[in-house]
């Protein structure tokens, strides 16, 4: 089954959401998004890291080296306070957008 493509700009939000639940390394972020979305959303692996680097560059997430479950050195990302704020804003915008799109799609001839 072909997977739905992400809307532009949503990847950042998903990453922020994923790391807001607890520090994660890059691969972990990928898995968590897939897991929560029940494999509906598949993120292209190559595009994850530039996004992570960009978010860290913007000060929305920060990273720290740690040891992964299988005893490997891994870089863990966590949300900063700026990232929390951004997630809140993005979320509110997304909700408004989704609601508005939903309204339109649910519109019946009587309402017009």
């Amino acid at each position: 089954m072909p997977l739905p493509e992400l809307l532009p700009g949503t990847l950042d939000m998903l990453i922020l959401k994923a790391v807001s639940l607890g520090p994660l390394h890059g691969y972990g972020i990928l898995l968590r998004i897939q897991q929560i979305s029940r494999d509906v959303l598949q993120i292209e692996q190559g595009s994850l890291y530039p996004a992570l680097y960009r978010l860290e560059h913007q000060g929305l997430i920060e990273s720290e080296w740690g040891i992964s479950d299988n005893n490997r050195r891994a870089k863990y990302y966590r949300l900063t306070s700026g990232g929390k704020k951004r997630l809140r804003n993005d979320r509110a915008r997304w909700d408004r957008l989704a609601a508005a799109v939903g309204e339109i799609l649910n519109a019946t001839p009587e309402e017009v």
């Binding site: 560059h57 000060g59 080296w65 891994a74 870089k75 700026g82």
Partner: peptide, 28 residues
């Protein structure tokens, strides 16, 4: 400010930046 700091860090420890990136991607 965060961007300048992050760029500054990346420039100052350029070889470390590259090395860490290499490790991170390989571990993925």
């Amino acid at each position: 400010l965060a961007r300048i700091r992050s760029l500054g860090r990346a420039l100052a420890g350029r070889s470390r930046f590259e090395e860490e990136m290499r490790i991170e991607l390989r571990s993925h």
